[in-house]
C-alpha cells in the first residue's frame, strides 16, 4: 500500500509564503475586533446568567424583537425588488451608462449614514421639498406625514442597504452565459418566459445571497429608527443603547449584544451554505 505523496513544508518555509503577510492584519483584527468582543462576552457573564435572565424577561424585548424582524424583512423585500431591477439595468447597459449607474449606487454607499439620514429627514419633513412639491402641483392640500413613521424608516434603510442587494445579484448576472438566453429565444420562448424560466433561475444564488446579507445588515440598524422613525420603531440596537445609557446596565447591554450576535451568526452560517453562482446556474 503506497500512500499518496503529501507535500509537507517546514514552518520557516510556510512563513516565507504569502500567509505570513496576513500577520499585521490578523494582529490588528485581533486587537480591534476580537478583543472588544471578548470583553463584551466577559461583561455579559459578569453576574453568571443574571444579565441574560434580566434581558429575556424584559417586557420590551418581545415587541422590539418583533419590530427588528418586521422592519428588516420589509427593508429586505423593498431592497430586493429595487435591487434586482437596478442590477439588471446595470447589467444590460452600455459601458458608459453602466459606469454612471454604478457610481450612483456607490456614492451614497460611501457617504456617512448620519448624512444620509439627515438628508432624508430634510426632504421628508412637513415643510420639506417633497411636501412642497406635492402641494405646489396640487396633488395634496395638506402636508403628508412622511417623517417619524415606519415608512420613513423603511425608506432610509432601503436606501442604505441597496448596494448590499445589488452587488451579489449584479456579480451573479455577470457570470451568466448570455448564449443561454439567445438559445431560449431562438427556440421560440417569449422574452417574458426567458426571463422567468432562464434568467431568473440563473440569478437565484445572487438573490439569496443579496437577500440574506441585506437582512443581516438591517437587523443591526440603530441610527435610522432614531432619526427617521419614532420611539415606536425601536430596534434591538436601540434597546442596547437604553441599557448602556439609560439604565447603565453594562451586563444587560452586553448580554443583549451577544444574543443579537449569535442570532446573526446563525444567519451568516446559512449564508455560507447558499448555492454558489456559476455560469449555468446554481452549483
Amino acid at each position: 500500500m503506497t500512500a499518496l505523496p503529501v507535500e509537507r513544508r517546514t514552518l520557516p518555509e510556510q512563513l516565507r509564503g504569502p500567509g505570513w503577510l496576513l500577520a499585521p492584519a490578523a494582529l490588528l483584527y485581533g486587537a480591534m475586533a476580537l478583543a472588544p468582543l471578548i470583553i463584551i462576552l466577559q461583561m455579559s457573564f459578569s453576574e453568571g446568567f443574571g444579565a441574560y435572565v434580566r434581558v429575556l424577561t424584559n417586557p420590551l424585548l418581545a415587541p422590539i424583537l418583533a419590530n427588528t424582524i418586521v422592519i428588516s424583512a420589509e427593508t429586505t423585500v423593498a431592497a430586493m425588488l429595487l435591487g434586482y431591477y437596478l442590477a439588471a439595468t446595470i447589467w444590460r447597459s452600455g459601458p458608459r451608462t453602466r459606469m454612471i449607474l454604478l457610481a450612483m449606487v456607490l456614492l451614497p454607499f460611501w457617504t456617512s449614514g448620519l448624512v444620509k439620514n439627515f438628508a432624508w429627514a430634510v426632504l421628508l419633513q412637513d415643510k420639506g421639498l417633497i411636501n412642497q412639491a406635492l402641494q405646489a402641483s396640487g396633488l395634496t392640500h395638506a402636508p403628508l406625514t412622511l417623517l417619524h413613521n415606519r415608512f420613513a424608516v423603511i425608506l432610509g434603510m432601503t436606501h442604505y442597504v441597496l448596494p448590499f442587494a445589488i452587488f451579489p445579484i449584479y456579480s451573479n448576472m455577470l457570470a451568466i452565459d448570455r448564449s443561454l438566453e439567445r438559445a431560449a429565444l431562438s427556440l421560440g420562448a417569449t422574452a417574458a418566459s426567458t426571463l422567468w424560466r432562464v434568467t431568473l433561475p440563473l440569478t437565484l444564488p445572487g438573490v439569496y445571497a443579496g437577500g440574506l446579507i441585506t437582512f443581516i445588515v438591517s437587523t443591526s440598524f440603530y441610527l435610522t429608527p432614531v432619526i427617521l422613525g419614532s420611539q415606536k420603531d425601536m430596534m434591538i440596537a436601540n434597546l442596547v443603547d437604553t441599557y448602556t445609557h439609560e439604565t447603565v446596565d453594562f451586563a444587560g447591554a452586553s448580554a443583549l449584544a451577544v444574543m443579537l450576535m449569535v442570532a446573526v451568526s446563525v444567519l451568516f452560517a446559512l449564508y455560507q451554505r447558499l448555492p454558489k453562482e456559476s455560469q449555468f446556474g446554481p452549483l
Binding site: 417586557p59 420590551l60 420611539q231
Partner: peptide, 18 residues
C-alpha cells in the same frame, strides 16, 4: 423607579399594553 417607569414608558411608546 427609573428602570420600571422607563420600561413602561417605552411600552407605551411602542404601542403595546403594559
Amino acid at each position: 423607579n427609573l428602570e420600571a417607569v422607563s420600561t413602561r414608558f417605552k411600552q407605551w411608546q411602542l404601542g403595546v399594553a403594559s
